[in-house]
Design a protein around this nucleic acid. Structure first.
Length: 116
DNA sequence: TTAGTGACTGTAG
DNA sequence: GCTACAGCCACTA
């Protein structure tokens, strides 16, 4: 039974929606997105959903989602290790050793920004 | 149908 | 401060 009711949006779909809301030059974390959706402990699924985002029709800025430490843990899923870094650097995000230096500066919390 | 896995996080020792 | 473990939901074999 795989219901795909438009009204019943999955955890999965919510991840894409929230991720697309991330503005240019900002990044968010798996946990923040998971918390906004309602399952703070399901952060793993957020990352996994973003992995699947590559096969989505609409572009999902998965490169703007990193772990809580600002570490680019998902870079390997971009095919080349430097793609995720270059995309972020293109958005004025400073990265060194696969970690965002100004993470607190560019961090975008959906729970805070969308919920208000 | 069942079991295993995954781009994480928080708590406990 | 570091290591270990549990929990979360959806997909694949």
């Amino acid at each position: 039974m795989k219901n795909q009711n438009p009204q019943n949006i999955n955890f999965f779909e919510k991840v894409y929606q929230v991720t697309r809301e991330i503005p240019f030059g900002r990044v968010s974390s798996y946990g923040a997105i998971a918390r906004y959706i309602g399952s703070p402990q399901a952060a793993r699924m957020v990352g996994w959903a973003l992995n699947k985002s590559f096969s989505q029709k609409e572009f999902v800025p998965a490169h703007r989602v990193v772990n809580k430490n600002g570490l680019l843990t998902g870079k390997k899923h971009f095919g080349a290790s430097n793609i995720m870094r270059e995309l972020l650097e293109n958005e004025n995000v400073i990265i060194k050793n696969d970690q965002i230096l100004n993470f607190e500066d560019v961090f975008w919390d959906p729970y805070k920004e969308l919920s208000l």
